[in-house]
Amino acid sequence: MNGHCDPRFAALGDLLAERLRDGAEAGASVCVIADGRVAVDLRGGSAAPGRPWTRDTLVTTYSLTKTMVALVALALVDRGQLDPDAPVARYWPEFGAAGKDGVLVRHVLGHTSGVCGWDSPVTLEDICDVGRAAALLAAQEPWFPPGEGSGYQAVSHGHLVGEIVRRVTGRSLGMVLRSEFAEPLGADYWLGAPEDVDTRVATLVPPESSGVDYAALDPIAVRTLTNPVIPPSVTTTRPFLAAELGGLNGQGNARSVARLQSVVSHGGAIDGRRFLAESTVERIFAVQADGVDRVLGAPVRFGLGYAVDGRTCWWSGFGGAVVVNDLDRRLTFAYVMNRMAPGLLNAPNTTAYLTALRSCLD
Rank of each mutant, 00 (worst) to 15 (best):
W53C: 01
R37M: 12
L71Y: 01
G36V: 04
L74A: 11
V69M: 05
D41G: 02
G50D: 04
G44R: 13
V40T: 09
V72L: 07
A47H: 04
T54K: 13
L71R: 00
T57M: 14
V30E: 08
V72A: 14
T65G: 02
V59A: 11
A73C: 08
A70W: 05
A39M: 14
P52R: 10
D35C: 08
V72P: 07
L58P: 09
L64H: 01
A28G: 11
D56S: 10
V59H: 12
I33K: 00
R55C: 10
D56A: 11
G27T: 04
V72F: 02
I33E: 14
G36M: 05
R51Y: 08
W53P: 03
D35L: 01
M68G: 11
D35F: 06
G45Y: 10
T67P: 13
S46T: 15
A73V: 06
V59Q: 11
V59Y: 10
M68H: 12
D41L: 04
T57R: 11
V69P: 01
T60M: 14
V32A: 02
A28L: 14
K66T: 02
R37H: 11
D41R: 03
W53I: 03
G36F: 10
T57N: 08
G50P: 04
T61G: 13
R55N: 13
R55Y: 07
K66N: 00
V32Y: 09
S29F: 09
A70G: 03
T60Q: 15
V30W: 07
S46C: 09
V32C: 06
C31R: 00
Y62L: 06
A73L: 07
G50L: 07
A47F: 05
A47Y: 05
R55G: 14
G45M: 01
V30T: 12
W53V: 02
I33Q: 03
I33F: 04
T54S: 14
R51N: 03
R51D: 01
V69Q: 02
Y62E: 08
D56Q: 11
K66Y: 05
L42D: 06
V38S: 14
L74C: 08
Y62V: 00
T67A: 12
S29W: 11
R43D: 15
G45H: 06
M68Y: 09
P49Y: 09
A28D: 07
T65Y: 04
